[in-house]
Design a protein around this nucleic acid. Sequence first.
DNA 1: TGTACATCAGTGAACGCGCGTTCACTGATGTAC
DNA 2: TGTACATCAGTGAACGCGCGTTCACTGATGTAC
Lengths: 254, 254
Amino acid sequence: MTPVDHPAPAASPASPPRARTVRERAREQITAEILTAARIRLTESGPGELSLRAVARDVGMVSSAVYRYFASRDELLTALLVLAYDELGAAVEQAEAAVTDRHDVVGRWRAAWLAVRGWAVAHPGDYALLYGSPVPGYAAPQVTVEPATRVIVVILGIVMDATAAGSRMPEPPGSGDDAPVVAGAIGFAQERGLMQAEAPTELVVRTLMGWTTVFGTISFELFGHLVGSVSRADDYFEIVIDRLAADLGLTEAD
Amino acid sequence: MTPVDHPAPAASPASPPRARTVRERAREQITAEILTAARIRLTESGPGELSLRAVARDVGMVSSAVYRYFASRDELLTALLVLAYDELGAAVEQAEAAVTDRHDVVGRWRAAWLAVRGWAVAHPGDYALLYGSPVPGYAAPQVTVEPATRVIVVILGIVMDATAAGSRMPEPPGSGDDAPVVAGAIGFAQERGLMQAEAPTELVVRTLMGWTTVFGTISFELFGHLVGSVSRADDYFEIVIDRLAADLGLTEAD
DNA sequence: TGTACATCAGTGAACGCGCGTTCACTGATGTAC
DNA sequence: TGTACATCAGTGAACGCGCGTTCACTGATGTAC
């Protein structure tokens, strides 16, 4: 993850896999240790106040040593972002893929979203890094974009399979053409073969809404806005994703 | 808001309104100046990194002088929280009350939520303070609770009026009894006379979902998660609130 | 297998900085008589 | 209206602290011959 001056000696296309040296393995391990320590710090300090020196202390090295691994605090943040997005993405992909009956789109929908919430509850600091307030003065670079899309890609895959099987959504209210507003999302889905060209705009709108609602629900839970209104956040979450499935016209497996 | 050692000389129940002294007026004005400066800082620093010294500098006073107004950084944060919640609440109440046809529940629904988004877009720093990641190490005290409820109280009022007029919601999926999960919200609404005792659980669930979806949508917009998917965030927002109104069974005015 | 040089990880001191908070002070404002 | 004392806002210096980053260094690891 984002080494500094020392790019892994790029294996030329046809070269045999070189034996990894002691140094290389140590480097990987310590990089991981730094990231782990930083993630733990994130649960109690917020990304904006994340202290490189504190992380170094936790790992047991002097603060300047961290600079052998990350060129700056911002680069460490970027690595954390990529790591967290990838971990979340992998968890969701795995949980969704574990549903053996691929026609059970509601089951897949539930599995995917439950994995998102499960990860978020288990890693609130990382969740806040990804979906909380942005870090002031820090702009996430390009490398974070692709990992950030993994969840929505899984979700779009489920929705596509469901519509191919002929699901029905509620009629959209109003009469305007909403396609231009969500054109970006349509383009994204089509580029990756996640949606047929003739997919109705309403499907895209409802998928975006579902996506936003789920993350909104998790944020409200973790950030304390459901206290007093909802007693069991896990039950409430299931209530929400079931209604979202219905609103998208996903139907229970036969 | 939250003076330190100098509580306003509590007007005893029946005493006539005393003439305000020069000092009292200066105090109020400078308190406001400090809060304003802090809010501006919040747009570029995040609440966790909000610097008392920077705020003092902006106001043109020495850092220790701020302690005449707020006993600590945390107290300043609390005052900001209350101020922002109250400002947002007032904006929403006013926008909703401005809809003259009180039977037009969809119009009132739209007016209220558009006011929320309008305020959020105009005050992104304050919005992040209220609805972004919580400030690590800071626990919002009791005084912030009531101001925080003003938006949902307005929304519940609209929904109540709509159901009194006989609106229809989609059938809930599943068959369990969801009432215990949202018992807190039901109690809240009933205590304030915002919902009849026989209001269906599904109505409460859908109202909570709408509430969460709207704030989720605004957070996604302001925190950068809609970039690339949605081209015009204001249009998209209207698309969302219209669908939420439909999901709640709110119907256009006759 | 052995030697000579290059690379690299980690150290420790130092830089300049900004932070929250305390404290004794001064001068202006308010109050009691 | 005038005087004497009390209250209060704001000052400036100081406290102890932690931060990100740089730099010359040492000793271990890797590589070429």
